[in-house]
């Protein structure tokens, strides 16, 4: 119940700050410590992250995790935020167009996002606009394609 209340409060605060359409969907996920899982407008993700970090009652100052997921009709970026001060968690997601995958970077808000966004770019080809150094990080620079996309065809030289 407390989780539901926290989510309601959070969604209301975000809508008040950024308008009705900023939160697309919201539900409590019991398999993520009861964290609210919010689908956020892709263009607003950096604004939302900044708000969540700086708002004194939320203080979500710790970016725990950031990664991508590929679906047939879209891609998603998953963010898991935490507050060391309040001990609460919030999961965010944005939807990304598969053909034109752009998401604003949050490296300016969370330095921890730097390598995680590069990893997501490396694996999914998602472009984080404004990232200071968006290069491949785990795969070689001349690698062709983004292997964690479901339609990726592995390069096979044959025998």
């Amino acid at each position: 119940m407390a989780d539901e209340q926290f989510m309601t409060r959070l969604v209301a605060a975000l809508r008040q700050a950024f308008g009705e359409t900023v939160v697309l969907e919201a539900q409590v996920n019991p398999s993520m410590y009861g964290a609210p899982l919010l689908y956020v407008q892709t263009e607003r993700i950096a604004d939302v992250a900044r708000y969540l970090r700086d708002e004194p009652s939320l203080r979500l100052d710790f970016l725990n995790d950031l990664h991508g997921i590929d679906f047939p009709d879209r891609m998603e970026v998953f963010y898991f935020l935490q507050s060391h001060q309040h001990g609460h968690f919030v999961a965010l997601k944005v939807r990304v167009d598969r053909e034109n995958p752009h998401v604003p970077t949050i490296t300016g808000i969370y330095p921890a996002a730097d390598w995680q966004e590069r990893e997501t770019y490396d694996h999914f080809g998602i472009i984080f606009d404004g990232h200071p150094n968006l290069r491949r990080i785990l795969l070689p620079d001349d690698w062709v394609g983004h292997p964690l996309r479901k339609d990726y065809v592995p390069h096979d030289e044959g025998v």
Binding site: N29, S31, M32, A35, N64, D65, F78
Partner: peptide, 10 residues
Amino acid sequence: RPPAGEVYVS
């Protein structure tokens, strides 16, 4: 076969 859904734990 875990049920459909998503989980993030540490």
